[in-house]
Design a protein around this nucleic acid. Structure first.
Length: 597
RNA sequence: GUCGGGGUAGCUCAGCGGUAGAGCAAACGGCUCAUAAUCGUUAGGUCGCGGGUUCAAAUCCCGCCUCCGACACCA
């Protein structure tokens, strides 16, 4: 019975290009997971988009002399291209500036407001003297009232570590233009989180399959819940759907409130674009569906506390959830099943920082190297359980000594030999015990590697798959078919058949991790169809006349299945080429020099 | 400051109550079909520091050092 699996991927922020640390955290793991479940035959819906609201976008716009919308447009394109080129197989990768997203966000806001989950309160806010705009706490600097440090930020003093309020800073000044900020009262809307505390507690306690740190951290967090401001004094954002704010352009919904709603709105958009406007309910108003969220560790509370509160509060009400008919009627919106958060990737021992040049942008990387080696590195050496370090030397080593040497070489030696000596999948004679054992061992990968993937243990899953490739290399060393063929062509054909069948199985096992090279291998082996076919961009125009680009693909025709592969005797092979390139060590110095400049 | 998570072989990391593990690097040997790739064997650590609990501690508890993150307006 196929399951409905929602793969909800963190929304990259569109104030600049994304670096490889970002895609290590949310991108590659989520894609491996989605591809695996598609191979399993499950109904996968993988959604995300660029997150385009909030202060940083307006600041980037000011700096570049553009409008916020122009900045968002630019980086939506750049980021979308990057994700496509990395092979991230979204069903819908959209953006938060669509009409659809505005409507869904406003519906959730209105529903929560009418049900009393959103309240209003006067607060003291800081505003820029020059632009009149809100100044977020972190954009205000001044002297720390506790330790006297002169570069303290409005939210926290980096010297003594105390949490601060910008009003308390001595000689406060805007980090943007240096002028002192103006403090004045302003009304804001608050999501009343304490109203959800009990339900959150009960729910999180039941989530025993969450990673322990995610669960205990979240349980701890809800011990001291306070109402959370969900509006900002800012012209760039989703308008507040209340009459008195309809004409005002100075207060909008806070970016974090709308960004998480994107998981739902993108699903609704997907259904609309697919011509089946209610299809999203199969995932969202279906108690059997499982939702997996992928993000960096800095995002945990938004996905374990705030977004679940929004979902609980909305329940089966509002214009979208409340319009369900038949089996979906009155079914509340589905809560997350698992929160797969990653740690952070550092770069040559340092934190990524675009301003200090400690950065490798995805598009930069992919302009010089292939996507699969990057996917390999980010999976085998990525920040799955703890912060890990990217170094160019380690990237080259992992590529040459592991990916090329173990898997690439196994494929190449096998295909080259079979192609040269037989040209087709050779007819085997009776299989010996070692032959049968090897095939059986490799085929256990579907169970063992599959279980690890189910549990989102990607590093272990890929190690296991590599170990199976090593078994085949060992087998070839023992059987020495290149010697055998001189006396006994039939036995040599059998050995090569066994190796080839293992390679055909490994082709599937590697597909979630290495889709590009697996597709090429699929072709070399003479199979037809797409194992991991192309991703596409489509342009959609909404009722307001605005159009936007969506990264998508037709994954339903993909031919692979997560099960022992059939390798027909006599299938005609295509002339093979090496799957991966060996990298020259000299690139390490070249890349380091590039970064140093 | 408060809370949470790390600190394990030269390097990158796994293990998280029962005689220390993997990959790579190193040493030796086999093979030569394959992108000089591969296969086998060996060597290598008092598991951040100091206490404690236990028959038994990387593994649990306490303190300290250090790194990372969260702590309502950066995502």
């Amino acid at each position: 019975m196929p399951e409905h699996i929602l793969v909800a991927v963190a929304w990259p922020y569109a104030n600049g290009p994304r670096h490889i640390g970002h895609v290590a955290g949310f991108g590659v793991p989520s894609d491996i997971f989605a591809r695996y479940h598609r191979l399993k035959g499950n109904h996968v819906l993988m959604v995300s988009g660029t997150d385009e609201h909030g202060t940083p976008i307006t600041i980037a716009a000011d700096k570049e002399g553009l409008t916020a919308r122009e900045v968002a447009d630019r980086y939506n394109q750049v980021i979308g291209d990057d994700l496509r080129n990395l092979g991230l197989s979204y069903d819908t990768f959209t953006r938060t500036t669509t009409l659809n997203h505005y409507q869904v966000t406003q519906d959730i806001f209105t529903t929560l407001y009418e049900k009393g989950y959103i309240t209003r309160k006067l607060t003291l806010g800081a505003f820029s003297a020059s632009s009149g705009r809100t100044l977020p706490d972190r954009y205000i600097e001044g002297t720390c009232p506790i330790c006297g440090y002169t570069e303290a930020r409005g939210d926290q003093c980096d010297n003594c570590g105390h949490q601060l309020d910008p009003v308390d800073l001595i000689n406060p000044r805007s980090k943007i233009d240096g002028h002192p900020p103006i403090f004045r009262e302003t009304e804001h809307f608050f999501l009343d989180l304490p109203l959800f505390a009990q339900r959150l507690q009960t729910w999180i306690e039941q989530q025993e399959h969450w990673r322990p740190n995610v669960r205990s951290f979240s349980l701890n967090f809800i011990q001291e819940l306070k109402p959370r401001a969900i509006t900002r004094d800012l012209e760039w954002g989703v308008p507040i759907p209340l009459p008195e704010y309809a004409q005002r352009d100075d207060k909008k919904i806070y970016v974090w409130f709308d960004a998480v709603i994107g998981y739902l709105s993108a699903s609704i958009e997907w259904a609309k674009n697919a011509g089946r406007p209610d299809a999203w309910r199969d995932w969202w108003q279906n108690g059997q569906a499982r939702h997996f969220y992928f993000m960096g560790k800095d995002n945990i509370v938004f996905h374990t506390v705030i977004w679940p509160s929004q979902l609980m509060g909305t329940s089966s009400d509002g214009r979208y959830a409340g319009s369900a008919q038949g089996a979906f009627a009155e079914v509340p919106l589905q809560l997350p099943y698992n929160i797969v958060s990653s740690e952070f990737l550092t770069m040559e021992g340092k934190k990524f920082s675009s301003s200090r040049g400690v950065v490798i942008y995805v598009h930069d990387f992919l302009s010089r190297y292939d996507p699969d080696p990057l996917r390999y590195f980010l999976t085998i050496a990525g920040p799955e359980n703890q912060d890990t370090d990217f170094t160019w030397a380690e990237f080259v080593r992992r590529n040459n000594d592991e990916l090329v040497a173990t898997w690439g070489n196994l494929v190449n030696r096998t295909l080259a030999n079979v192609y040269k000596n037989f040209g087709v999948v050779p007819q085997p004679a009776t299989l010996t015990t070692p032959d049968e054992q090897l095939i059986a061992n490799v085929e256990t990968g579907f169970a063992s590697c599959g279980a690890l993937l189910e549990a989102a243990r990607f590093k272990a899953a890929l190690s296991e798959t590599m170990r199976l490739a090593t078994l085949v290399n060992s087998y070839l060393s023992e059987q020495e078919p290149w010697k055998v063929i001189k006396q006994d062509r039939e036995r040599a054909a059998t050995i090569w058949y066994v190796a080839l069948r293992c390679v055909a199985n490994l082709r599937i096992l590697f597909t979630p991790f290495l889709p590009f090279s697996s597709q090429r291998l699929h072709d070399y082996l003479g199979y037809a169809g797409d194992l991991a076919g192309p991703l596409t961009f489509k342009e959609y125009t909404e009722e307001n006349g605005m159009s936007h680009r969506v990264l998508t693909g037709d994954y339903t025709h993909w031919v692979g299945r997560w099960e022992a592969a059939v390798l027909p005797v006599g299938q005609v092979l295509r002339e093979p080429q090496p799957l991966f390139k060996k990298l020259d060590l000299s690139l390490v110095d070249a890349e380091l020099a590039r970064m140093g400049s």
